[in-house]
Amino acid sequence: MNKIKYFFILAAFWGFSVQLAAQNFNSAIGVRFGYPFSISYKTFISESHALEGYVGFRGYSGVANWISINGAYQIHSDIDAIDGLEWYYGAGAGAQFWSYDFAESGSTTFSVSGYLGLQYTFEEAPVSVSIDWVPTFFIGDSRYGAFNSFGGGYGALAARYTLGRQ
């Protein structure tokens, strides 16, 4: 067998052996410190599957800025070595509403994102923190012309107040 077949066999065994997470809260609200800076709401729809929505702002040195609306579907899994620590992955989509300082018009772009992160929920406090990497592909037109590009530098450090503790 070649190396690709070995990789897929190992990935399949690993996927079946992953333990699902049993988070200790139902939902959380807070902020994402990153690109863009955002207000975030996350809710679990099962023990390991969550939906996150966030609205953010990003400025570009007095030239342009955007307001974005994003949603993500995430799958969480416990890291057994540390109570309260989980890793997650997922996918999402968003829309960015651009405003330009040098023009009286704006534009809209759309995005498709992947998510890979760590989340820690404190046992003694109603707080959850996470850090994630969100590689994003943007689609649409902007004042700069066609805006079909990939951005690998997106992500955030988030802090949220948990609701519905279990």
Rank of each mutant, 00 (worst) to 15 (best):
G151K: 04
Y115C: 01
R160A: 05
I9L: 13
A159S: 03
A158C: 00
W133D: 03
S27I: 09
F7Y: 13
E104G: 15
A81P: 00
G15W: 08
G56W: 02
K42M: 10
G164K: 01
N148S: 05
V134I: 11
D83I: 03
R143G: 13
Y144I: 09
G62I: 06
A125V: 08
Y115H: 07
R32A: 13
R165Y: 01
K42H: 02
S77D: 06
R143Y: 14
F33S: 09
S27C: 11
Q96D: 13
A146C: 09
V55S: 09
V63K: 15
F137W: 07
G90W: 03
S27L: 06
V127G: 00
S149H: 10
Y60I: 15
G15Q: 09
A28P: 04
G114V: 06
V112K: 11
Y88S: 02
E123H: 07
S17L: 10
G84D: 06
E124I: 08
A72E: 11
A103I: 08
L116N: 07
G153D: 10
D80R: 13
F138R: 01
T136A: 10
V134S: 12
K42F: 02
Q166P: 03
Q96C: 05
T108A: 01
S17F: 08
S149F: 06
S128T: 15
F16C: 12
S130M: 03
Y60L: 15
G117M: 02
A125K: 05
L163A: 02
G62Q: 04
A72N: 12
T109L: 07
N24Y: 08
D83L: 08
Y154C: 00
G153S: 03
W87F: 15
S68H: 09
F102Q: 03
